[in-house]
Design a protein around this nucleic acid. Structure first.
Length: 254
DNA sequence: ATGGCTTCATAGTGAAGA
């Protein structure tokens, strides 16, 4: 089973790249973030022709998440139960007995911002919800754009980023809290190239200089982690014309 | 230097992303 997550930064703009890539990669499950598409405009038909069922929760201009799967997903939950949120950032679905949670964690803007407090409260709600979901579903994967670089090695210049949003201690503590629930970072189950990142700023030629962060993650429950055989970042898409600023992350399970 | 690019939005001194 192959799982993938990709922040597409507009599904409308990135649909041709997505269709080409899933045609080549053939993932079984794909989580998308920042679709920026209202549900009425979601490209259900194009994805069906590519072999994917889709569940989605979108809104105009911002946010928006979706789960694509080769077998029909069910038991959808939109948003974090009990956490009032106008922003479409979370979607859970069950695919062939595996619980898949697609998350687009708030950016936070800066550590002084109200959006940062929203980010931390969102992460606290996610943590509480995941605790419940893990009890119900031993086979669980949490995929998405976490907007958190967990460790120094996930940041091109940790001294520059220390204390900044995406790399502040409270954010990293929230990420470690998710690991404390028994989730494993699939990317770190395997040897990886140094300076592996999943996001590069559009500005300042950041991609070509590899000035990036690893902020997109696939966390796996113990049961799924035991089946993991590979994980990697699909860096090639970031080099295309009109790329998303994020690269897909892939995990392969037996 | 708080910019730099990209998207969706509207016609804003844009907003938001990360």
């Amino acid at each position: 089973m192959k799982l993938a997550t990709w922040n597409v930064n507009s599904l409308n703009v990135r649909l041709p790249q997505l269709l080409t890539w899933v045609g080549r990669e053939q993932p079984d499950i794909v989580c998308l973030q920042e679709t920026k598409t209202e549900d009425a405009n979601f490209p259900t038909e194009e994805l069906r022709e590519a072999g994917y069922h889709a569940l989605f929760a979108g809104q105009r201009a911002y946010n928006g998440v979706a789960v694509l799967a080769r077998v029909p997903p069910g038991d959808m939950i939109v948003g974090i139960p009990g956490f009032a949120d106008e922003q479409k950032r979370a979607l859970a679905a069950t695919v062939d007995g595996t619980r898949v949670i697609c998350a687009y964690v708030p950016n936070g803007e800066s550590v002084e911002s109200d959006k940062y407090r929203y980010k931390l409260s969102w992460l606290a709600a996610l943590h509480a919800w995941l605790g419940q979901e893990l009890k119900a579903y031993p086979r669980l994967a949490l995929l998405g754009d976490y907007n958190i670089a967990p460790e120094d090695r996930d940041v091109h210049d940790p001294r520059l980023w220390e204390g900044k949003v995406l790399f502040s201690k409270p954010e990293r503590a929230a990420f470690r809290g998710l690991l404390g629930l028994g989730l494993r970072d699939s990317f770190r189950l395997f040897e990886q190239p140094e300076l592996s990142f999943s996001w590069w700023d559009y500005r300042m030629n950041a991609f070509n200089r590899n000035r990036g962060l690893r902020i997109d993650h696939i966390l796996l429950s113990e049961e799924l982690a035991g089946r993991a055989r590979a994980s990697r970042i699909e860096k090639s898409l970031r080099g295309l014309e009109r790329p998303s600023d994020h690269a897909p992350v892939v995990a392969e399970l037996i």
